[in-house]
Write a protein that binds this DNA or RNA. Structure first.
Lengths: 80, 80
DNA sequence: CTATATTTGTGCGTATGTATG
DNA sequence: ACATACATACGCACAAATATA
């Protein structure tokens, strides 16, 4: 079960690759409404990326209205 | 007795400087085996650093096997 | 048993510096 | 010049574990 990974050499920015992975996990139901996304720290460890990159990925989903972030708590999947 | 301080402008990261100070205090016997290190909050006040930086410094020593950390209690010098 | 204080654990907000394509 | 990405480091807030009154 190789989970999807990131290709730092791709022309697609890493933060967009991570955003796409998370988006798929939301739409597939793997990440459920009102449940937290993996934390920035978790994403850093899971994908071997910098925290800023993890933040940018989450920012993409936030701009798309898929998630909401609460300071000090985490980022949550929006209920449909 | 000016205790060692930290230089935020150094090319050596602050958390590594603090780790080096604590390491020396352990090896000199100033911090004794089975005794607690200064708490994160104490390090923050003593060196004028952020808590996250103090935590990273302790993490270095933990990775080196010099100390062990117990949730809710503190970080202790490992017996030799 | 309850309440409080202390300490570590976790999570996000922000800023700066460096390096690369 | 610009976007991307990593590393460092400041901060705030709350949770969990522990110790003590």
């Amino acid at each position: 079960m190789a989970s999807r990974t990131v290709d730092p050499l791709s022309s697609v920015p890493v933060y967009r690759q991570v955003a796409a992975i998370l988006r798929d996990r939301i739409e597939s139901g793997d990440l459920e409404p009102d449940r937290p996304l993996p934390s920035e720290t978790h994403l850093v460890q899971e994908y071997g990326i910098a925290r800023g990159t993890a933040r940018r990925a989450i920012e993409v989903l936030r701009d798309e209205g898929l998630v909401v972030t609460v300071h000090g708590r985490g980022t949550y999947v929006k209920p449909r």
